[in-house]
Design a protein around this nucleic acid. Structure first.
Lengths: 190, 190
DNA sequence: AAAATTCTTAGACGCATGTCCATATTTATA
DNA sequence: TATAAATATGGACATGCGTCTAAGAATTTT
């Protein structure tokens, strides 16, 4: 990570991230991320190559920053205030609702970026870690038979899997069914 | 994938895979996979670069073939003959036992190849997919409230997570505790 | 407004990648 | 054994990567 976009950005940095982010996702609807070159992104966004490397280590670093930018749209600041037994559902529902607005874009991108490629890897990883960190940073009074970090990881895995099942694969599972499945898989755990 | 090592290999192919595999893992104990070059592997293994590309697309493709070679040591051909309710435990136990023999090597490699790097990504992915395919190809009479593929994926995720917890992270969880945790996380599901 | 600081920009550098081809060597077939 | 097919080898190629430096532009500080 070359530039920290989580702290407040200068106007310049903001424009740069937005431009490259837009251009990257345009490119992703046309080809796989493995075939996207830095030169190409810079030409489309009208930046010199040096500027790209001022901000990002490589294309995958840029992609990570994009996830971060996208994720900041899904507001979950109030997570700790939700009763513990409703948190999992709430978390999943918000992700589901948000992603529903991007079905078409996701489908286009997935045409060129298969499930076992680096694009999907990166997305999977981001969702998993994001949910893990949300859970792990919202301590919960409930007692579990295993370390809390392990629980959080398990939830991260499972929610990520269900989202992937609903949006990346074409299984057409509606929200209610997905929620049921999620709770079934998580068994008695709340 | 350039060469299919799953079908019977010529003596040449066998030697080539073994040499490169050995040299790759030697290199992994000294540096991260991101810094390993094809040229370097070829020099250490005394092969011309062209030969490498005859067999592998790149270093990560070689790594995948290594996993395959390693996994063939963990015999699970009899998996379908195990009673359904014991399968998960059996699968996990064999992996656990096998990996126990490589604690030292794993530790050395992990010094240079962090959890969020491509090495760990590749290992994670392989284990997940391997377990998924074992389960999915061993039909089971039990009825589940969700598609069987989803169940298999869930099991793959969870077993992979527990193995990672026990071997890649240094949580020192003994086999019995890990098995208990596994069943706890999988809840009522068998 | 001037000076200092920070960031952008352009170009060049060395190195690694993955492909290709022509030749040599091995393996299989007749 | 001779011939055919397949594979290994060596070298060259264009292209991308990531770094670096020096000069220019924008921003902040004085």
């Amino acid at each position: 990570m070359k530039h920290d976009f989580s702290k407040r950005m200068t106007r310049f940095a903001q424009r740069t991230l937005e431009d490259f982010s837009r251009v990257l996702f345009e490119a992703l609807t046309e080809t796989s991320i493995e075939n996207i070159t830095v030169r190409e992104l810079c030409e489309k966004a009208n930046y010199p190559r040096a500027t790209f490397y001022n901000y990002f280590d490589d294309v995958y670093d840029l992609l990570n920053d994009c996830w971060q930018k996208i994720a900041s749209d899904i507001v979950i600041d109030d997570y700790p205030s939700i009763p513990a037994e409703e948190r999992t559902s709430a978390l999943f529902e918000r992700c589901y609702t948000y992603l529903s607005g991007y079905r078409a874009a996701i489908e286009k991108i997935m045409k060129h970026n298969p499930m076992d490629g680096r694009f999907a890897e990166s997305l999977r990883k981001y969702i998993r870690e994001q949910i893990y960190s949300i859970i792990v940073n919202s301590p919960c009074s409930e007692k579990y038979a295993v370390p809390y970090e392990l629980m959080a990881e398990h939830y991260g895995n499972t929610i990520q899997m269900m989202l992937e099942w609903c949006f990346i694969r074409r299984e057409q599972m509606p929200k209610e069914a997905a929620l049921e499945a999620l709770h079934y898989l998580l068994g008695g755990l709340s």
